[in-house]
Simulated assay, not measured.
Amino acid sequence: MGAGKPTLAQIAQSLDLSTATVSKAINDKPDVSKATKKKVEQALKDSGYRKKAQNKKAQCIEIVFQELENLWEIEVLRGLTECAAEHGLSVVVTESGDHQHPASDWASGVIARNPVGVILVFSSLTENEASLLSSKDIPFIILDPSGAPSPNSMSVRADNWTGGLLATRHLIALGHRRIGIITGPSNMLCSKARLDGYHAALEEAEIKIDDNLCREGNFQETGGLVQGESLLSMRQPPTAIFTCSDRQAMGVYEAARRLGFSIPQDLSVVGFDDIQTAAYMGPSLTTVRQPLREMASCAAEMLLKSRQGRNQTHNSVILPTSLIIRNSTQSIG
Rank of each mutant, 00 (worst) to 15 (best):
G4F: 03
T7C: 06
A9H: 04
A9L: 09
A12G: 12
L15M: 06
D16I: 01
D16Y: 04
A20T: 12
A20F: 00
V22A: 08
A25I: 09
D28R: 15
V32T: 15
T36E: 10
K37I: 12
L44C: 07
K45Q: 15
S47K: 06
R50F: 02
N55E: 12
A58F: 07
C60S: 15
C60L: 14
I61V: 15
Q66E: 14
Q66D: 08
L68G: 06
L68V: 10
E69Y: 13
L71I: 03
E75G: 05
E75W: 00
C83D: 11
A84G: 10
A85F: 04
A85I: 08
L89C: 09
L89Y: 04
S90T: 15
V92S: 14
T94F: 02
G97M: 07
A103P: 10
W106C: 11
W106N: 10
W106H: 15
S108G: 13
S108F: 03
N114D: 11
P115N: 10
V118Q: 05
I119T: 06
V121S: 05
L125M: 09
L125S: 06
N128M: 14
A130H: 03
S134C: 08
S135D: 13
K136W: 02
D137M: 13
D137E: 15
I138K: 09
I141D: 02
L143I: 11
D144G: 11
S146H: 08
P149G: 07
S150N: 14
S150H: 14
D159Y: 00
G164W: 01
G164Y: 02
L165A: 01
L171I: 04
A173K: 15
A173C: 01
R177N: 02
R178L: 07
G180D: 06
I182H: 08
T183R: 10
M188Q: 07
M188A: 01
D196Q: 14
E203K: 11
A205W: 00
D211F: 00
N218E: 07
E221Q: 13
G223A: 13
G223S: 14
Q227W: 00
G228S: 14
S230F: 01
S230P: 06
F242G: 06
T243K: 00
Y253T: 02
L259P: 11
I263T: 05
Q265R: 14
F272G: 07
Q276M: 04
T277L: 12
Y280G: 01
T286S: 07
T287G: 01
M295F: 08
A296K: 06
A299K: 11
E301W: 06
T313I: 09
H314Y: 08
P320Q: 04
S322M: 03
S322D: 06
I324C: 02
R326F: 00
S328C: 06
G333T: 14
G333K: 14
